[in-house]
Simulated assay, not measured.
Amino acid sequence: MHLDLFATVLTIHNLAYQGTFPPDVLPVLGLPWDLFNLEQMEFYGKVNFLKGGLCFADRITTVSPRYAREVMTPLFGCGLEGLLARRAGVVHGILNGVDYGEWSPASDPFIPAHFSADAMAGKAACRAALVEKMGLSDGPGPIFGAVGRLAAQKGFDLLASVVPEMVALGARVVILGTGEALVEDMLARCAIPGKVAVRIAYDNALAHLIEAGSDFFVMPSRYEPCGLNQLYSMAYGTLPIVHAVGGLDDTVVDVDEDPDQATGLKFRTFTAEALLDRVRRAISLYGDPERLQKVISRAMAQDYSWDVAARKYLTLYEELLESRRVGQAQ
Rank of each mutant, 00 (worst) to 15 (best):
A152L: 10
A181G: 03
A129D: 11
S214Q: 13
M219R: 13
L136Q: 11
D250P: 04
G247H: 04
L136M: 06
P164I: 08
L176R: 00
M134K: 13
Y232T: 08
A128E: 15
D138Y: 09
D138H: 11
G148N: 00
C126R: 03
A151T: 13
S137L: 15
K195R: 15
F156H: 03
A181I: 06
A128L: 09
A151Y: 00
A146Y: 02
M219I: 15
A235P: 00
V147S: 03
A235V: 14
D118Y: 06
T251N: 06
S214V: 14
P164H: 04
P220M: 12
A124R: 13
V255T: 14
D203F: 11
A160D: 02
A212K: 08
D258H: 05
G145K: 05
L130H: 04
E211G: 01
G135T: 08
A212H: 04
I210G: 01
D185S: 14
A244S: 12
A212M: 04
M134V: 15
R172P: 10
A188I: 06
G170D: 13
N229T: 12
E257F: 07
A151C: 04
V167D: 06
E165C: 04
I192S: 12
G148Q: 02
V167A: 13
D138I: 07
T238K: 12
R189Q: 14
V174P: 09
I200S: 01
M134P: 07
H208E: 13
E165P: 03
V163A: 01
P140D: 14
K154C: 01
F144R: 02
V173N: 08
A181H: 02
M120F: 15
L159Q: 04
P140K: 12
L150I: 06
A201T: 05
P220K: 08
A205F: 00
A125I: 12
E165Q: 11
F156M: 11
N229C: 04
I210L: 10
F144A: 09
G145E: 01
N204Y: 15
H208N: 07
H243C: 08
V183N: 02
K154Y: 07
V167W: 05
P193F: 13
V167N: 07
D258K: 12
I192R: 13
A171W: 07
A119K: 13
D157L: 02
S214M: 13
V245E: 00
V163K: 00
V245W: 03
A235E: 15
D185P: 04
A124F: 09
N204Q: 12
V131Y: 00
A191E: 15
D157S: 11
A125N: 05
G139E: 13
G141V: 11
V183R: 01
A168C: 09
A125F: 00
Y232H: 14
L159G: 03
L158G: 02
V131P: 01
I210N: 07
I192P: 08
A146E: 04
T251E: 02
D118P: 00
R189P: 12
L239N: 10
V131E: 09
V174E: 07
V173K: 11
P140I: 02
R149E: 00
V255S: 14
L169S: 12
L169N: 09
D203P: 12
G237H: 11
A244F: 05
I241Q: 10
R189L: 09
V131A: 10
M219C: 14
N204E: 14
E211Q: 15
A129Q: 11
E224W: 03
L150G: 06
H243L: 06
L209Q: 09
C226F: 10
V253A: 09
C190F: 06
G227R: 04
